[in-house]
Simulated scan of single mutants.
Amino acid sequence: MSSLGFSLCFVLGFTTVFVLLGASATALGQVLLGYRFEMNLIGGGIVILFGLFMLGTLRPAWMMREARFHLDLPGGRVTSAYVLGLAFAFGWTPCIGPILGAILTVSAASATVSDGIALLIVYSVGLGVPFLMAALLTESLSVRLKSIGRFGRYLRAAAALIMIAMGTAMMTGYMSAFAFWLLETFPLLGRIG
């Protein structure tokens, strides 16, 4: 199998875990639907905390821990790539945790189960595209990664600031107002999903 095929199996592995997390968080959110105001306050606070964590302003020890689970799977197999993707979803939390946590929080606070699954599929596709592109461009990419790496710090800070703004909007009720404004301004968005 080609490196693209193995990468696709890897992406399917972590997508499986993220979609299950999204469905679970959204199902729990539906149970708590009667507490939407409180959920928006708590959820917004969590998203702000994740944004502060990404900025480096907040570094609690419990979020800096790492857990590892070692399996001895022979390489070069589809199953190994899929299991590695599953492990990636659980083990790479310090890097993707704040953004994933924010998506799960938004999913639980305001979406249906199908919307929660859709949010996590979109997240997984976005996370998976670089892996698939890297598999396609393995040789030429290794030379260019060194020059691209310096922009990662700025992208991370921008994502953190967006998360803080989103959390604030959730807590103040502006998230709903912004969603309605988007739907009125871009009616095409209402037909998506």
Rank of each mutant, 00 (worst) to 15 (best):
A111C: 07
L49V: 06
A89F: 02
V125H: 04
L104H: 05
V11E: 01
R77C: 02
I192Y: 14
G193V: 00
P74K: 07
G75H: 11
L137G: 04
K146A: 12
L49P: 00
T168Q: 01
S142G: 08
G193Y: 01
G190F: 00
I48T: 07
V106T: 06
C95V: 03
N40H: 12
A109W: 08
P60I: 06
W62V: 14
R36Y: 02
G29L: 03
A118N: 01
Y123E: 03
I96C: 06
G29A: 04
S114R: 13
I121C: 12
L4M: 06
I96K: 04
G91P: 09
N40M: 15
G101H: 07
A102F: 01
P60T: 07
V31D: 06
A67R: 14
S142N: 11
M64K: 13
T16V: 11
G43K: 03
G116C: 01
I162V: 13
G45N: 08
M163Q: 09
I46K: 02
V83Q: 02
L127M: 11
E38L: 15
G152V: 08
G85M: 11
P60N: 09
A134Y: 15
G29R: 03
A157C: 05
G13V: 06
L52W: 12
L32P: 01
G167F: 10
S147I: 10
I42A: 09
P60Q: 09
W62R: 07
T138N: 03
L8K: 05
F6Y: 13
G45R: 09
L32R: 12
F53Y: 11
L52T: 11
